[in-house]
Structures are given as structure tokens and as C-alpha cells.
Design a protein around this nucleic acid. Sequence first.
DNA 1: CAGTGGTCTAGACCACGCG
DNA 2: GCGTGGTCTAGACCACTGC
Lengths: 258, 258
Amino acid sequence: MNETGARLPKYHRIADALREQIRTGRLAPGDRLPAETAIAATHHTSVPTVRQAMSVLRAEGLIESRHGIGTFVRATHRLQRRSRNRYGEARGRDGLLTNTLRHEIASVGIEPAPEQIADCLNVEAGTEVVARHRRLYDEEDRLTEIGASYLPKDIAAGTYLEEPTVVPKALFRCVEDLTGRRYTDARDQVTARRATDAEADRFGLPLGAYVLHLIHTATDENGDVLEVSESIWPADNVIFVDHYPIPAGPTGETGSEI
Amino acid sequence: MNETGARLPKYHRIADALREQIRTGRLAPGDRLPAETAIAATHHTSVPTVRQAMSVLRAEGLIESRHGIGTFVRATHRLQRRSRNRYGEARGRDGLLTNTLRHEIASVGIEPAPEQIADCLNVEAGTEVVARHRRLYDEEDRLTEIGASYLPKDIAAGTYLEEPTVVPKALFRCVEDLTGRRYTDARDQVTARRATDAEADRFGLPLGAYVLHLIHTATDENGDVLEVSESIWPADNVIFVDHYPIPAGPTGETGSEI
DNA sequence: CAGTGGTCTAGACCACGCG
DNA sequence: GCGTGGTCTAGACCACTGC
């Protein structure tokens, strides 16, 4: 039945055959693939060639091998979703999470700001800030987000924001109440990048997997940064959704179509 | 020299050694790595083991092999940047592109809407719409973005928006002028996902690479969708930056810290 | 042509998880 | 112990590129 016509490498044809079985549901998520030796036999080839085919599917995120157990079809679910208008239509309503997730403060303390964060805080890299690290888990208690909020020391040091407990209301409201200043402008930066080793480890991601990295900077009416926070998700599990009004401004011609 | 202490697999140590040379700049972007046989000799191992090490670095996006030529350190540049407040602070100013890119209409015509797009347009999958496909190139004429705008037939069919030429002003303004309706609300969806074969091919991406996919939906004051547009970039090359005001609303307590 | 990476083999032995 | 995948070998031959 290998009448694909084209003259593809053997490992490629094996990968195609397995991919097709996964696509059609003949091999469902969670199913174990036949052993490498078995696949080699059915395709009249050697084990290393089968392993090469599997490395293709592994790079595509379709399968996952567990040493001593077998190779399994990965569950692919982009279930989590997230709207990032965190200040709500009516400010005060928590518009951030559309799924309620278990939320846990991993650690809180004074640390030197990482370079990217320092850039957003308008301070030199290494300047000490109050950092609140958090972890979010889904309904099945899988880690789905890691993140942190970074606050200038002159805002948060010595306050209850330095305690490693979940604060009773939105963090931005805590900062506003403590300082008397108001959050007026925000900047979000979103990148997709490869997971660091530490991230891959914590999320249980395969080699080369991507994460989405959001850095949110909030400033007051003077342009002073009140807070920088970051969130990191496995890229395959998240979709950002963002609603915003389009200003009904005056005219002005532009030369660009987009 | 190989006193890492830990007892890592040989291919892993080779990958570490090469990665370190890349990190320190000893092997700069564009440089050719030694031949596989040479690396095997220096590490007293076999060629397949070296190839295994290289497949690790390839999955990490650090190197790239060209058949018959050699293996090269990949240039990693996240230069492109993009702000997506496309309607400008003062509407009419093109706030979309912070780099000016060469812009080209790939094709324009009436097509059935892809499923995701149809969802956003509030029509059934397969409904015919006017699609304007575009390609954007950077200063060095490399393809950096592919995208499309989808317009309902009752808006764009029979107008100059069906011509395969770049329109003289922002597309949204064309639609407003043609219909007399106003863009009032927008929704953006952002996901990172693996490139399809076609995308990998067009962008020249390696297997398993990711793209960022933005779907933008614009509606008028009645909630009717005027336009859906999508943009796709290689994930490694783009950073979204988005500025927006934080509404100065009333209070309201929330139980969530974030 | 020589040199490169791409494909493929037929084994060996090890490490892991389970019964 | 047994079956699984993980590591590694020492080759062979092919396909591509550039000279």
C-alpha cells in the first residue's frame, strides 16, 4: 500500500504513515505506538531508520517517548484562553482570566531585576526590586503559567506586598491604594521564543518547544513605571484574545494599505 | 578539558561544546562548522554520534545544514518589531509598522473563507469573501510576513478593493469611505503554532518551527464585522508591542491578585 | 573531481519501568 | 527477567555543491 508515487526517503515515508494514522484517529492521543522493532519489521527496515522517522514526529510535537515504557501520541489541546484587558471594561472587574485557575505564590522577595525587566522599569540591570513569582495550574493541576510581578522598592518594600501570600484584591489596586498614584497607561510586549531549560523542565516540554512571553508595563500619568509583570505559557496551550475600541478620530491619509 | 563532572551522553557533551562556542562568538552567525568527520575526530567518536549532537542544535534553531556545503551557525535576529495599534493614536496615522517594509499584493479574489476566518466574520465556513493576500519583505528583501484581509462580498465585491493593486490609503479607510460605516471595535487573537508545510517553505523555516499568527476582527457600532485580517510571522523574528490607556474607572473588589 | 551532508544498515550494550 | 527506548559504532552508498 505504499503507493505514494513520489520517491521519498524511507524514514520520511514511515513518518508519513504514522502521521496519517494519528491524523485519522487510528492512533489516538495517549495511545502507545508499536515498539520500534515492530515498526521496523512491518516496514522492512532497521531500527535506526524507524528512530529517525520518530525523531521527525517528535520535532513536530506529535509523539513523545518514555524510556522503558514506549512511545505515545501526544494530547494536543489549546484549551487555555486568556484575555489580557486586565483592567476590565469596568475597571475592578477581573477581566484577565476566562478560566479560573489555581493560583499560587511561588516566592516573594527583593531581587536584582533581570535585564529585560529592568529595561521596562527604566532602571539599570541588576537594580533591586520586589519580585512576586507566581504559578498557575489548570483544572487538572498541571502547571500552565509561570509569571512574576516586579515592583520598584520605593513602592513595595516594607509593605504587605513583600509577604509571600496572595493579596486580597488585584495587585494594581493594592499599588494604587498604597501609593495614591493611578495606573493610566500600559504597554504589552509579546514574543514567542524557545523555552529555556528551566522552563522546559517545569512545564514538561520537549526540546525546542516554544513559550509565549508577555511583558506588561504599567505607568502613571507622569510616565513613571509602577509595575512590570511577565507571564510565560507553553505556546501550544494559549490563545490571546484582546478587545479594544477603535478611536473615532479625524482623517489623515496614509500611503500604506494595511 | 571535559571536566563537566556530570556523566552526560557523549552526543550531549558534543552539543554543549558546540553551543558554548556559538554562545561565546567563537563560532559567529554565518560561520561554517567543521565537517562532521572532523568533529568526530576531535571528540574521538563516530560520525553518527556527531550527527545526533547536531540534530539537537538544529532543533534548538542554532545551526542549519546545507547539503553538499556544510553546517552553519544561524543568524538569530529578532529585529522586526511591530506595534499593533493600527488605528493610530490619531486615527489616520499609520501606527502599524515601525519598520517600513516592502509591501506587495500577492493575489486578490473571491474565495471561500477558511474556517477560522469564517468564525470571525460570523459566516459559515466556505462562504465566499473578497480576500486580499499580501507579502511583506524586509530591507534585505527577505519575506518577513504573509497576511490577508478578508472582506464580506456585500462590502467589497465590485469595488476597487477587488483589484490586485495596493490601495492608496489604509484599507479600513477605504472600507469606511465605500460603505459609510465606521470601524468602532476590534478584537485581536494571537497564537503561536507550528508552521504549516506551506509556511515553512515560504519562510524557509526548519522543521517544527513556530509562527505567530494574529487574527484581527473589526466591527462597526452594530457589531457587524467589516473586516478580518490575519498576519503570520516566523515566531523568532517578531515582537509585538502594544500601548493602550488604562481606563480610570470606579472601584470594585476582586479576589484575584493578578 | 573531492568534499560535504543525507540516508541506511545490523548489530552492540545500557538504562529504565514493570512484574 | 523482560521489553522498552537511549546511546553508540563502523562502516556503506547516495546526492548535492563547487571547483
